[in-house]
Simulated assay, not measured.
Amino acid sequence: MEKLTNKEEEIMHVLWRLEKAFVKDVLAEMKDEKPHYNTLSTIIRNLVDKGYVGYNAYGKTHQYFPIVTKEAYRKRFINTAISNYFNDSYKNMVSFFAKEEKISVEELKEIIELIEKNN
């Protein structure tokens, strides 16, 4: 599974949310800078080529749908990020977020409770 560009990820989030969509539907859902229709169509075709998106053809029109689930993508790239940036250590990752004040003591306690429940 290949890492997606930021724009490709943005489009995948729209497709995950909509489940099935034509290019015009994806364009309508995009929040930030909207690409030109033809550019968006090309990016979606690239997602098809990469194996992330499938489609149903209706004449010259295509309705697109995600093949890769959001959960599968998240799992793959969270693991890659932890490996690349935190030396394969979840402790280092949590410590980083604690130092950056991105996670509170209460949230850490909730995480500990979840871990203890699963053991």
Rank of each mutant, 00 (worst) to 15 (best):
117 K>R: 15
67 I>M: 05
29 E>I: 01
78 I>Q: 09
63 Q>P: 00
74 R>G: 03
92 N>Q: 09
52 Y>E: 04
93 M>E: 08
72 A>D: 13
78 I>P: 03
54 G>T: 03
86 F>C: 10
18 L>A: 11
81 A>C: 12
38 N>Q: 13
25 D>T: 05
76 R>D: 10
34 K>S: 04
63 Q>F: 00
109 K>N: 11
30 M>T: 08
116 E>C: 09
42 T>F: 07
89 S>W: 06
75 K>C: 01
13 H>C: 08
90 Y>E: 07
114 L>V: 12
77 F>W: 15
55 Y>L: 01
22 F>R: 11
85 Y>P: 05
87 N>I: 12
43 I>P: 00
55 Y>V: 02
79 N>M: 11
60 K>Y: 11
59 G>C: 09
77 F>D: 02
83 S>E: 15
86 F>W: 12
99 K>A: 10
35 P>Y: 02
105 V>L: 09
103 I>W: 03
23 V>G: 01
111 I>Y: 08
80 T>P: 00
85 Y>C: 13
84 N>W: 11
25 D>H: 09
71 E>D: 12
66 P>A: 06
38 N>A: 11
61 T>Y: 13
30 M>C: 09
54 G>I: 03
44 I>H: 02
37 Y>F: 15
81 A>I: 13
95 S>E: 15
48 V>S: 02
77 F>Y: 15
83 S>F: 11
25 D>Q: 10
59 G>D: 06
47 L>T: 01
60 K>I: 10
112 I>V: 15
113 E>H: 13
99 K>Q: 11
34 K>L: 02
91 K>N: 12
91 K>T: 14
14 V>E: 05
